[in-house]
């Protein structure tokens, strides 16, 4: 468990981190290290250099601005879990954070790190998709903002270029009811399937609803058909049953020693139904 040799440099500002990324080939960002360090120790990844961004204070913190929740990419899962601001502004995020790993992992691992790593069994990608988060990416020519729906490009892959850095994530902060349900892999604690759902309803009628699923497929996705089947309709158990029963239609689910594809598809349906039930009381 000894990594291949690499250089290490701690950046103290976003500019410095970007400069290091530009001036070093094969450099890799180190944030909380919860995925990267094990991979390094197993020599599954052998970058020439690690740029440690954990000391950049501007990347850390949670604030509300113009009705949006602004979360620095270096904010830990634990900080989100413990934030009263998050609890008030984004019940979905507040529901998800305590379900990540264990307390030690949550103290180390970061929001931005999890999103940028884009593990198919990661939790945050589902929430980012469900709340349609905006991800702010800094590069040589300033920043660009990408919607979550455009951010994930495949398993372990995002639109972040090699010379760019995810700096903050903006999510709606109006307190939309939301919930994250997770079926934990008994070994890793990662999501076999995780379902992030937000929904509003008014006088028995569903307003907006968003459903995002992680763990089931190589990359997290929005269950758009199920969302359309619900939006604007009167809440009923039958409606939720019907919508959830199609949530896995057409999916090519992952398969592993713990959960064959058919089981993942079953979990998607069951968990979407249960999440909707909890939010819409039906």
């Amino acid at each position: 468990m000894h990594p291949a040799p690499f250089a290490y440099k701690a950046a103290h500002s976003v500019e410095e981190a970007l400069e290091l990324l530009r001036s070093h080939e094969d450099a890799k960002i180190l944030a909380g290290g919860q995925s990267l360090i094990p991979a390094l120790k197993l020599r599954l990844t052998q970058p020439a250099m690690l740029i440690d961004i954990s000391k950049i204070s501007s990347l850390r913190g949670i604030r509300r601005e113009n009705g949006k929740l602004i979360i620095g990419s270096g904010t830990t899962h634990r900080e989100i879990e413990k934030s009263s601001l998050v609890a008030e502004a984004s019940p979905l995020l507040a529901s998800l954070a305590p379900q990540i790993g264990d307390v030690q992992v949550r103290h180390r691992g970061t929001f931005g790190g999890s999103l940028a790593h884009a593990d198919p069994a990661g939790d945050w990608p589902a929430a980012a998709l469900a709340v349609d988060a905006e991800l702010v990416i800094a590069g040589a020519h300033g920043t660009r903002t990408v919607h979550a729906s455009d951010f994930f490009t495949g398993m372990l892959s995002t639109v972040i270029n090699a010379d760019e850095l995810l700096t903050e994530i903006r999510v709606p902060g109006e307190g939309t009811p939301g919930i994250y349900l997770k079926h934990r892999n008994a070994a890793s604690g990662y999501a076999t399937v995780g379902v992030a759902v937000t929904a509003t309803h008014n006088h028995g009628r569903i307003g907006t609803v968003s459903i995002a699923v992680t763990g089931a497929t190589p990359v997290a996705f929005r269950a758009s058909a199920a969302e359309h089947a619900l939006t604007g309709h009167a809440v009923s158990a039958h409606l939720l049953d019907e919508a959830a029963s199609h949530a896995a239609d057409g999916l090519e689910c992952l398969s592993d020693i713990h959960a064959p594809a058919a089981y993942r598809a079953q979990l998607v349906k069951v968990m979407v139904r249960r999440a909707l039930g909890k939010l819409l009381h039906a």
């Binding site: 264990d102 892999n185 008994a186 070994a187 890793s188 604690g189 990662y190 592993d256 020693i257 713990h258």
Partner: peptide, 28 residues
């Protein structure tokens, strides 16, 4: 409920780490 050392037909240990070999946690 959880633990199993799994090999594939070629003798590869598929449960080769704690990511795939499920020991009991206090929380469960």
């Amino acid at each position: 409920l959880w633990e199993e050392a799994v090999y594939d037909e070629n003798g590869q240990l598929l449960s080769g780490s704690l990511m795939d070999y499920a020991i009991p946690k206090a929380s469960v």
